[in-house]
Amino acid sequence: MATKRKVNNLLALAVLSVIVERPMHRYEIATALKDRGKDRDMDIKWGSLYTVVQNMAKANFLEIIGSERDGARPERTIYRITDAGRAELLDWTRELIAVPESEHHRFVAGLSILGVIPPDEVIELLGKRVEALRHSIEAVHRELADIAESGLPRLFIIETEYGMAMLEAEMAWANSLRAELVDGTFPMLDEWRRFHADHLSPSEVTALVERGMVEKRSS
C-alpha cells in the first residue's frame, strides 16, 4: 500500500530529484526540470510549483538558506534539501519502483463503455489508435538512437525505454482486439451489432444478456 505523503504530489518528487544536487531558487528548479524532460515523465503542473516548494519547506524537506537579486528582478529565495528531504526522496522512489498501484488511464475508461459504439466504428477507431501509437513508437526509437549517439548512460533513459515498451504492448493489444472484430471471432459480436441496429437501451441490453446467460445455463 502506498504511503500517505506529507506533500503527495509527484512534482514534489521531481523537485527533490534536482535540488538534491545543489541549492536552487524556484526558477532554477523549473529550468532543471524542463531541461531533463521531467514534464514527460510526471504530470507536472508548472503553476503549482510555487505552492509545492512552500509546502515542502513547511514539511521540512527543504530549507531556505538565503536569497539573491539579479538586477531589477524580484528577490529570489534559495532552497536546499534537508536530511528529511533526502530520506523522502529515497523512500518515495523505492515505493514507486517496488509497489504496484492502480492508475486511471483514459484508454481504460473508454474500453469500460465500449459497447455504446457500434463494433464497425470501433474497428475504425482502433485503427486510428494503432497508427498514432506507431508514430509515437517511431519517435521514441529516434529519440533513443539520438541518446545512444550522445553517449548518455542507459541509467538516465530507463524511463524512456519503459515508456516505449508500454506503447508497444498497447499497440499489440489494440491490434489484437481489432483483429477479433474484423474476423468475427469476438464473442457476441452479432448481438453487439443488433443492439445498435435495434436502438436498444442499456437496460434492455443487460436484460437480453442476462436472459441469454440463464438460458445457456439451463440448456
Rank of each mutant, 00 (worst) to 15 (best):
Tyr50Pro: 06
Thr51Ile: 10
Val52Lys: 01
Val52Ala: 01
Val53Asn: 12
Gln54Ser: 06
Gln54Val: 04
Gln54Glu: 12
Asn55Gln: 09
Asn55Glu: 13
Asn55Val: 00
Met56Phe: 01
Met56Asn: 07
Ala57Gly: 14
Lys58Gln: 11
Lys58Val: 08
Ala59Thr: 02
Asn60His: 14
Phe61Glu: 14
Leu62Asp: 00
Leu62Pro: 14
Leu62Ser: 02
Glu63Ala: 01
Glu63Cys: 01
Ile64Val: 10
Ile64Trp: 03
Ile64Gly: 01
Ile64Pro: 02
Ile64Leu: 04
Ile65Ser: 05
Ile65Val: 10
Ile65Gln: 05
Gly66Glu: 07
Gly66Leu: 03
Gly66Gln: 06
Gly66Asp: 05
Ser67Gly: 04
Ser67Cys: 01
Ser67Lys: 05
Ser67Phe: 09
Glu68Trp: 10
Glu68Tyr: 09
Glu68Asp: 14
Glu68Gly: 03
Arg69Phe: 00
Arg69Cys: 02
Asp70Cys: 04
Gly71Tyr: 15
Gly71Phe: 15
Ala72Cys: 02
Arg73Val: 01
Arg73Pro: 00
Arg73Met: 12
Pro74Leu: 08
Pro74Glu: 07
Glu75Asp: 10
Glu75Pro: 02
Glu75Thr: 12
Glu75Arg: 11
Glu75Trp: 00
Arg76Ser: 07
Arg76Thr: 02
Thr77Ser: 04
Thr77Val: 07
Ile78Asp: 10
Ile78Ala: 11
Tyr79Thr: 00
Tyr79Val: 00
Arg80Asn: 05
Arg80Gly: 04
Ile81Asp: 04
Ile81Glu: 03
Ile81Gly: 05
Thr82Cys: 09
Thr82Asn: 08
Thr82Ile: 10
Thr82Met: 12
Asp83Pro: 13
Asp83Met: 12
Asp83Leu: 13
Ala84Glu: 13
Gly85Tyr: 15
Gly85Ala: 13
Gly85His: 14
Arg86Ile: 05
Ala87Ser: 12
Glu88Met: 10
Glu88Pro: 05
Leu89Trp: 15
Asp91Glu: 15
Trp92Gly: 02
Thr93Gln: 08
Arg94Gly: 03
Arg94Glu: 07
Leu96Trp: 10
Leu96Thr: 06
Ile97Tyr: 02
Ala98His: 11
Ala98Met: 15
Ala98Asn: 07
Ala98Cys: 03
Ala98Arg: 13
Pro100Val: 04
Pro100Glu: 10
Glu101Ile: 09
Glu101His: 05
Ser102Leu: 11
Glu103Val: 04
His104Thr: 04
His104Tyr: 10
His104Phe: 12
His104Asp: 09
His105Gln: 09
Phe107Gln: 06
Phe107Asn: 03
Val108Lys: 09
Val108Ser: 07
Ala109Trp: 12
Ala109Val: 11
Ala109Thr: 12
Gly110Gln: 15
Gly110Val: 06
Gly110Ile: 04
Leu111Cys: 01
Leu111Phe: 11
Leu111Pro: 03
Ser112Thr: 05
Ser112Ala: 06
Ser112Val: 00
Leu114Arg: 12
Leu114Pro: 01
Gly115Thr: 09
Val116Ala: 09
Val116Ser: 08
Ile117Gln: 13
Pro118Ser: 11
Pro118Trp: 06
Pro119Asn: 15
